[in-house]
């Protein structure tokens, strides 16, 4: 979220100076010389003062800790004794640690399976909600609601109950499919799907963005295609998808980054029991393991190294996505 806030906050003083009305900004400065310049300076100062809570927060709560954690990543630090410089040992330990590799596997599986499913669900619902029908406002609100509460602790607890042995999902699966897995939560091979289902259910945010994108597609294109005899599938594939590809790109980017950072729902769904996450660590996603190492095993140096490794990985994936957009993202300006 930070990159979005930055320009807004930085724009504050300049926006103020350029604003209309007497006694403000450049026009007044030309008119009455040094007095106005002083005032402008004061206004700049006021601007910075207004920004100061954000700047202080950024420096103290984000930038400072980040720099500190970069240093800790190269140390052995248990919170009590002074950090001891050990060079790259945390990183070599990480690659040698089977539990770390397991957490990477779990996370990648979750990202690769969960993100496309969530986006597909979001797009499908957005397409439905884009049709002219009575009560669409209500449906939009209703479909968005799960993403407001989905990330909360209580929903993860409810989810745990729904997917347990002999609970509703287990019973339905038995009677409809004749399959008895004895509850998804207890099964190391199934629990990750209940986590993915929980994520899918929170499709509201990308859905709203898709909906905004769909509204931008010119009607004439569809009308022209219909005249030429294109069916609904063809219209979706050749008009809708290319036209909303910038929005799709944005959603893919955002959801991928989010998925890499999943923590709360995996931690709670897996059940908290002394340094584990799910049966046989089945929901031990990357950040869960980071938390276990940092706060339960007091290995802050190792946990910091893990955090920076995650940042590198997410940065790399983002770079690849940006590089790939040349091939599939269609911008109107470029077409002209």
């Amino acid at each position: 979220m930070t990159p979005v806030q930055t320009p807004t906050a930085a724009a504050l003083p300049t926006g103020d100076a350029a604003g209309p009305g007497p006694g403000r900004g450049g026009a007044a400065e030309e008119r009455s010389g040094p007095g106005a310049r002083r005032r402008a300076r004061r206004e700049n100062l006021a601007g910075y003062l207004f920004m100061s809570p954000w700047i202080a927060g950024f420096a103290l709560l984000t930038a400072g800790p980040m720099i500190a954690s970069l240093y800790f990543a190269f140390t052995d630090y248990n919170l009590f004794d002074a950090p001891r410089w050990i060079g790259l040992k945390n990183f070599t330990d990480m690659f040698a640690d089977p539990r770390w590799r397991h957490s990477v596997d779990v996370t990648l599986w979750y990202v690769v399976v969960g993100t496309p499913l969530k986006l597909a669900a979001a797009l499908a619902v957005a397409l439905l909600l884009n049709q002219k029908r009575r009560g669409q406002g209500f449906y939009r609100a209703a479909f968005y609601a799960p993403s407001l509460i989905g990330a909360s602790v209580s929903i993860a607890v409810v989810w745990r109950a729904i997917f347990s042995d002999d609970a509703i999902v287990d019973r339905a699966q038995r009677s409809l499919l004749g399959m008895d897995v004895g509850g998804w939560i207890g099964d190391p091979d199934w629990i990750v799907y209940s986590l993915i289902a929980l994520t899918m259910w929170q499709f509201g945010a990308p859905m709203v963005i898709f909906l905004a994108g769909l509204k931008q597609v010119p009607r004439e294109l569809y009308e022209a295609a219909e005249v030429d005899g294109a069916g609904p599938w063809r219209r979706f594939w050749n008009i809708t998808l290319p036209m909303i590809s910038p929005v799709l790109f944005f959603n893919v980017l955002l959801e991928t980054i989010h998925s890499f950072q999943i923590f709360g729902s995996a931690y709670i769904l897996g059940g908290q029991a002394g340094g584990t996450c799910g049966p046989a660590d089945a929901t031990l996603v990357y950040t869960c393991y980071l938390y276990v190492q940092g706060f339960e095993n007091s290995r802050m140096g190792f946990a910091s190294a893990m955090a920076w490794m995650l940042l590198l990985a997410v940065g790399l994936v983002t770079a690849v996505l940006f590089w790939s957009q040349k091939r599939w993202v269609h911008y109107e300006e470029a077409a002209r």
């Binding site: 042995d165 099964d187 059940g271 029991a273």
Partner: peptide, 11 residues
């Protein structure tokens, strides 16, 4: 006991 079931009845 089946460890799958044990882990589900937690806490």
């Amino acid at each position: 006991s089946d460890p799958k079931k044990v882990s589900q009845v937690k806490p």
